[in-house]
Computed example of a mutant assay.
Amino acid sequence: MLSTFGAREKAMYEIEINDKSYQVAPKSQKLNTGLINGNPYEIDFIKVKEGEYHLLYNNKSYNVELIKFLEDKKHMELLVNGNKYTVAVKDEFDALLENLGLDMSLGGAEKELKAPMPGLVVDVLVEVGQELKDGEPVLILEAMKMENVLKATGDVKVKSIEVTKGRAVEKNQVLVNFE
């Protein structure tokens, strides 16, 4: 499942499971061996069917069902042997952005979309009055030589658009207002 998030060899991940953090360093793309909080691990897993897996870890058997998966937010909900777990994954890039104070999300169904960093508005993808669902793109902001698609994190309606295509913006500048 981590491979769906784009696992890389020699990568380090911070995985939060029900508010408890783990540092995970897989040794290969297969993710079945590596280190968890500095301790070696080995996991055998097979896909039983779509959304269901069987794992062997520390001589224990686990049945895992994927309940919810939000790839763009690197978040999933799992049912493991009948117990529900919420899992969030951060890689080095996510940690770097967080340390720099750059958040690529809207942070919930807020009333304003603010620029997470200084940049240039490449495109405005919405119109006043348009209703958006969670995860739908709002606008494209170019920053640090990358195009970043800013998305709605809740169901919202566009009240006003405060920027135009081609305009430079500063960090925390209001880009779009929502109802």
Rank of each mutant, 00 (worst) to 15 (best):
M1S: 07
D123A: 05
L102Q: 02
K30C: 06
G107T: 13
L132W: 11
G129L: 12
P26A: 07
K84P: 05
F45V: 06
K10V: 09
M146W: 13
Y85D: 02
P118G: 09
Y22S: 10
V158I: 13
G135Q: 14
E179P: 03
M1L: 08
T86M: 04
K114V: 05
V174I: 13
I15A: 05
N99C: 03
F93T: 12
V149Y: 02
V24N: 14
A115Q: 00
G166C: 03
K73T: 06
V126I: 14
G34K: 10
T153R: 02
G154C: 04
F69S: 08
E98V: 04
L35C: 10
M12I: 10
G129M: 11
N37T: 03
V158Q: 00
L113W: 01
D44L: 09
K157R: 11
H54E: 15
A95I: 10
V163E: 00
K151I: 12
K157F: 01
P118K: 13
P137A: 01
V126F: 01
L35Q: 12
S28M: 02
R167K: 15
K47N: 06
Q23W: 12
I15L: 04
I161F: 07
P116L: 01
K27T: 13
E98M: 11
Y41R: 15
V156I: 15
L31D: 10
D72W: 12
D94G: 13
H54C: 14
M76P: 00
P116V: 02
L120Y: 08
E112Q: 05
I46Q: 04
K27N: 12
M12A: 14
M146V: 15
G154W: 05
F69W: 13
R8P: 14
G135P: 00
M144L: 07
L102Y: 07
V128Q: 08
M117G: 04
A109M: 06
V176E: 01
M1A: 09
G166L: 05
V138S: 11
L175Y: 10
E98A: 15
